[in-house]
Design a protein around this nucleic acid. Structure first.
Lengths: 92, 92
DNA sequence: CGGTATCCGAACCGATACTG
DNA sequence: CAGTATCGGTTCGGATACCG
């Protein structure tokens, strides 16, 4: 599945997450993502733009409606993952 | 996120999907997954077992309750991804 | 600030061969 | 059939330096 292929790549989620509460600039995102390399960050940004999840505005990068949609879908999954990860430390 | 890291790897989804309708054996899974290498398949199986998403039964490998839970969570996301991917070809 | 070019090391995948 | 060991190829990520 293409979606997971994309999301699985480094920083994709980070970008999505950081964009979820407002537009950010390139340098801004870079800083917030634990100082990811410009190379990779730009690559992700490009990819996410291509698939129409984010877009460039005058304020920087921002989530498209589709992007927000996905983010909302991902959120509960994230919750579940957190619980599951917790269980994991207790069980395993 | 660990979850996506795992799911993004080759065959993870395939395994989950194939297991969703009953237990499968090693060779069985291998065949159904487009003849993935034993190496990789075994690695995935091991990883999925470690995180408690699947388990070994006398009938082969099977989804744990957690595994099914995840599968159900993933399903709608998959739907969405399909639509989104469709939009993509029209828009981009 | 925004973005690209280049280089290097790491992770990953796959095929094959072999053991229990 | 189930699973492990080894090796090679490829792809990806990260750092740095540099241009508009």
């Amino acid at each position: 599945m293409v979606l997971f292929d994309l999301l699985g790549r480094r920083w994709s989620m980070g970008v999505l997450w950081n964009l979820s509460d407002g537009p950010r600039t390139f340098r801004d995102l870079q800083t917030r993502c634990g100082s990811a390399s410009p190379t990779v960050l730009n690559t992700r940004l490009k990819e996410l733009r291509i698939v129409g999840l984010i877009e460039k505005t005058e304020k920087g990068y921002a989530l498209t409606p589709k992007g927000e949609e996905l983010y909302k879908l991902l959120d509960p999954l994230g919750d579940w993952a957190a619980i599951w990860k917790n269980d994991l430390s207790n069980t395993a």
